[in-house]
Design a binder for these strands. Structure first.
Lengths: 185, 185
DNA sequence: TATCTCATGTAAGTGGTTACATGATTGC
DNA sequence: GCAATCATGTAACCACTTACATGAGATA
């Protein structure tokens, strides 16, 4: 159900089309929420049916018409109520961990290469995040920023810390895999 | 699709009933995969249809019969092939982050209390993980353990590091929220 | 000439959640 | 007497993915 609330949140920041929202999922909100354009369009329809958003059609020359959505009063109220509702426990689905477990049981030799692949991938992501941080915020103290940018920076930093922690751990795992196996006593 | 492979992995470790598997999802594998008993039973059925697992019915006195599942050769082969298949990029869905963003836009006063709640929750989880670590592994060097326990410990440590990183970040956020807001220049 | 971007959607399938259902045994 | 544990499942619904579809203008 939360995707609807993410959409409401994005619309609270200003009117937008389905296309605009989908772009947001690929960029700013991408490091804490993802959604495909099909989901976005469908949920916009559902939200409109429920009276939480309304839209106006903006014709364009040469391009398809834009449907620009905005929050209704009911939508704003629903969003406000949701913010303070309890956060459901998130459930984890970490395929990499499963492969690690499976690889060990099956006696696969490929554990190392899977680990290295994953490290490269996440290292690249971390570098990307750091670039964004440097370009947009350039080593500034978060407390000195207006609240909006301050929280945007903090959201980015969570992504950075998460990747750092993962890479630290992966490094430890990599070295620990080197040690010879001793039979269980 | 990955749930089926998690089940195959658990069965590779030894025969088990649906009930046993579901217990595993609540304990050992709980910090990297979750599944409800309905999912487990349904997917066991699908796996049996596909010939990747087989089961034998074990009657019990006073309790319902157990259906004890085990891997077939085809199942083991499928698992092996899967381990080295590329890991699809995991998608994030962090409700807490969305609330933070929404709360700011709407001007909610409740941000602080949401943050504190979440910190308490994750702090408790971290404490739990550390207790398990101390009880099962008692400060031992992972490299000295047989491979199986070694990886079990490393899986647990990923959970620990993840919670630690989150709490560090939350602490920073908490203090950063104190600073007065300055209007965007 | 071909691909990318803008901009919208439908249809079919899979994955996951919630609620319902049964029934004996063990511990409070 | 009541709840929890053991052990299995079905049915209905909701969320999400993959594939298909259109069509003009911009860029390589």
């Amino acid at each position: 159900m939360a995707l609807r609330h993410v959409i409401l949140t994005l619309l609270e920041a200003g009117p937008a089309s389905g296309y605009d929202l989908q772009k947001a999922f690929e960029t700013e909100v991408g490091y804490f929420w993802s959604a495909s354009h099909q989901q976005v369009y469908r949920d916009l329809g559902k939200l409109a049916d429920a009276g939480l958003v309304r839209f106006s059609v903006v014709p364009q020359s040469g391009k398809p018409d834009r449907k620009v959505y905005e929050l209704t009063e009911a939508g704003r109220a629903a969003l406000l109520a949701w913010i303070e509702s309890p956060v459901p426990p998130r459930k984890l689905h970490d395929e990499f961990m499963v492969r690690l477990m499976a690889g060990e049981l099956v006696g696969s030799v490929a554990l190392r290469s899977i680990l290295r692949d994953q490290m490269a991938l996440r290292g690249a992501r971390l570098a990307e995040y750091r670039t964004i941080e440097a370009r947009h915020f350039g080593g500034v103290d978060p407390a000195s920023l207006p609240m909006m940018q301050r929280l945007a920076l903090m959201r980015l930093r969570l992504g950075i810390r998460g990747e750092e922690a993962w890479l630290d751990w992966a490094q430890e795992l990599d070295s620990v895999l080197d040690a010879p196996d001793s039979p269980p006593s």
